[in-house]
Design a binder for these strands. Structure first.
Length: 592
RNA sequence: GGACCCGUAGCUCAACUGGAUAGAGCAUUAGACUACGGAUCUAAAGGUUGUGAGUUCGAAUCUCGCCGGGUUCACCA
């Protein structure tokens, strides 16, 4: 039981004992005491002054006295308005710290028995990954790690949107203008190669549509008149009919893309245990739709298309099968969900997908509910906000995107320049140096993306956004590296079961209190599926430590016991920083 | 137009889910001892939480109206 829970129950008992009224311990508010008041935790007793029929000061004094008599770790208390501020004893902090320092499993909560499948990344296979995918990957990876640390069994999966009109467009442009070129031949990364033809398609279609556009035809109509559009359409249909030649081209081009993706995943430390492919799920989805139709859950239009009516849910009618019998996006997702459920039988299926698809997932859930699927309500759409550029939205059709690989390269370069400027590469061999640039550059990027609540939009300015000072990844990494330097110098005997110190400096208390918050942060992060909780926590720990480091000597005190204690405190701090950063997929440097 | 989301310091974000005098970082200004690493630390300045009402001991947080911004409602994925 946590201190907070203990105090909640004790406060409920106090009210019962003093005023003969029963209250729910859960309803007792316990806060951390704000910095400008003395105390560690605060009990809010406003709700009980009516029950007590006394003024807040009297009520607070009575409850405070009761608590102080009850617990030896409460050294003192003071009452301000309706707040009872409790001050804990030195022994309490030392004992808590010792417990923490000697617990090898700290930060790994016991197994919950809950199984979760988490889908993330979800790229289309017609173009390279971009900034949006980066946010997706970082959020997904971090949420999975956080859930695991909370004791859940997490299976990370990916979904490739590998079929349909988009890849057909790349195929058509390649067919018409590549002369059989390949990534190997041109020296391009596979996904960039295919993406080039996707952008080219859009150029060509605009060119070819020009005559109709000049006649005043609407853009979408004009594009339908073009040769390249016809070819892309043809590919889509031929694909569904199993034309071997088309399938061959499709396989080849997708293969190029997967090779390229693999490199990017490795660069970013992103992995998953299973990949799903829409090309393997759409037929199952179609069957499910037809089954629903036969049960009169859905309805058919005269043209043969199949629809679901969700107007009673305040939504619209939604197409499930086109009039030509082919499936659409949502149908495929129905198949994916079914397949995934059969694979894992999870308690929860989390989808990390952008917030522009909130409506889509609402519909998906309702359709599966209509079909009576047991997993319908295990579906949870964990959405994240768009990443905006200073110029506005990214537009992949126009090639106006921040490319993931370019961005990574830029981060590594910035990290290198910065490190060299500060003269930190002295005594490092080139391998060590490059590893460091990677740790710092990727760390800065991950932290930048994760420190903001995932559901908020973020503005990404490539020139200014990713910094190395202040509330950043490298700031936290730096704190770690400095502690590491101390540990190297001090030697290994820094963790002892007992510390011969009697008084604690306020900075030491602050730090211990902060460290003890780790599991609380971990839980909040899991409950809200929000990695920014962990990011902000890690920053707070680093800041609290840096303050202590600046004001006090860690290992050069005249009293050797003080040195031992502070070095141990530093070591535990470093361990927690490492754990917290690890949850975000951020590595830690030995020196920087 | 229907549904949903957002508005906090010049900028980027917090606020323990209803608690005290709304906090950090960046940028600006002024400082930090031949102490363990200055990618650090200390301080100043910066606010009518878009706006108006309501709910109660107490509102950035909950409710309603208005103003401003966004997403979505495809036989695209």
């Amino acid at each position: 039981m946590s201190i907070e829970q203990t105090l909640q129950q004790a406060t409920a008992k106090a009210v019962q004992h003093l005023y003969q009224t029963e209250i729910d311990p859960q309803s007792v508010t316990i806060n951390q005491t704000p910095k400008n008041f003395t105390g560690n935790l605060t009990v809010v007793i406003f709700p009980y002054i009516k029950i007590a029929r006394k003024n807040p000061l009297q009520t607070g004094a009575e409850i405070g006295n009761y608590l102080k008599e009850q617990f030896s770790f409460i050294e003192d208390f003071n009452v301000v308005q309706g707040f009872v501020n409790l001050l804990f004893s030195n022994e309490f902090w030392l004992q808590q710290f010792t417990q923490l320092a000697n617990n090898p499993n700290f930060g790994q909560l016991p197994a919950s028995g809950k199984k979760i499948v988490l889908e993330y990344i979800g790229p289309n296979t017609n173009k390279p990954l971009h900034l949006g995918h980066i946010r997706n990957m970082f959020v997904g990876h971090a949420v999975a790690a956080i859930l695991q640390a909370n004791g859940h069994e997490v299976h990370k999966v990916n979904i490739f949107n590998d079929k349909g009109i988009n890849i057909s467009k790349s195929m058509a442009a390649w067919k018409l203008s590549a002369n059989g070129a390949t990534p190997q031949g041109t020296g391009m990364k596979g996904d960039h190669f295919v993406g080039y033809y996707y952008v080219l398609y859009n150029k060509l279609v605009t060119q070819q549509a020009a005559p109709w556009l000049q006649q005043g035809m609407e853009r979408t109509e004009a594009e339908k008149q073009t040769e390249i559009y016809a070819l892309a359409q043809d590919y889509t249909q031929q694909w569904e009919q199993g034309n071997p030649e088309v399938l061959q081209l499709w396989r080849t081009m997708n293969g190029w893309v997967y090779e390229g993706f693999k490199e990017t995943f490795e660069q970013l430390g992103i992995e998953y245990e299973k990949a799903y492919y829409e090309s393997e799920c759409y037929e199952l989805g179609k069957e499910m739709a037809l089954e629903g139709l036969s049960q009169n859950l859905f309805f058919k239009q005269p043209d043969g298309s199949v629809w679901v009516d969700l107007t009673d849910q305040n939504l619209d009618q939604k197409l499930l099968i086109r009039s030509d019998g082919t499936s659409v996006y949502i149908t495929q997702d129905m198949g994916v969900a079914e397949l995934r459920y059969n694979d894992y039988h999870p308690h929860q299926m989390i989808y990390v997908v952008g917030d522009e698809q909130i409506y889509h997932f609402k519909v998906l859930k309702l359709v599966l509910e209509k079909l009576g699927k047991p997993y319908a309500n295990t579906i949870y759409h964990l959405y994240y906000g768009m990443v905006d550029l200073p110029e506005g939205k990214m537009k992949s059709r126009e090639g106006k995107v921040v490319d993931a690989d370019d961005l990574v390269a830029e981060m590594l370069q910035t990290a290198e320049e910065h490190t060299k400027e500060l003269g930190k590469t002295e005594g490092m061999n080139p391998d060590e140096a490059h590893l460091l640039y990677r740790i710092l550059g990727i760390g800065a990027l991950k932290y930048f993306m994760l420190r903001v609540n995932a559901q908020k939009r973020i503005l990404f300015n490539p020139k200014e956004s990713v910094d190395f000072q202040g509330n950043t990844g490298p700031f936290i990494q730096y704190s770690y590296a400095r502690i590491n330097s101390i540990l190297r110098k001090f030697g290994q005997d820094y963790i002892l079961p007992h510390y011969q110190v009697e008084t604690l400096h306020p900075f030491e208390k602050d730090l211990i209190a902060e460290l003890l918050q780790y599991e609380q942060a971990l839980q909040t992060a899991a409950d809200t599926l929000d990695p920014s909780v962990v990011a902000n926590y890690a920053f707070a720990v680093a800041k609290t430590y840096n303050k202590l480091y600046a004001e006090l000597s860690v290992m050069n005190n005249s009293n050797p016991h003080t040195n031992t204690f502070r070095v141990a405190l530093s070591a535990v701090t470093a361990g927690i920083i490492k754990k917290a950063l690890h949850l975000m997929g951020i590595e830690v440097p030995q020196r920087m």
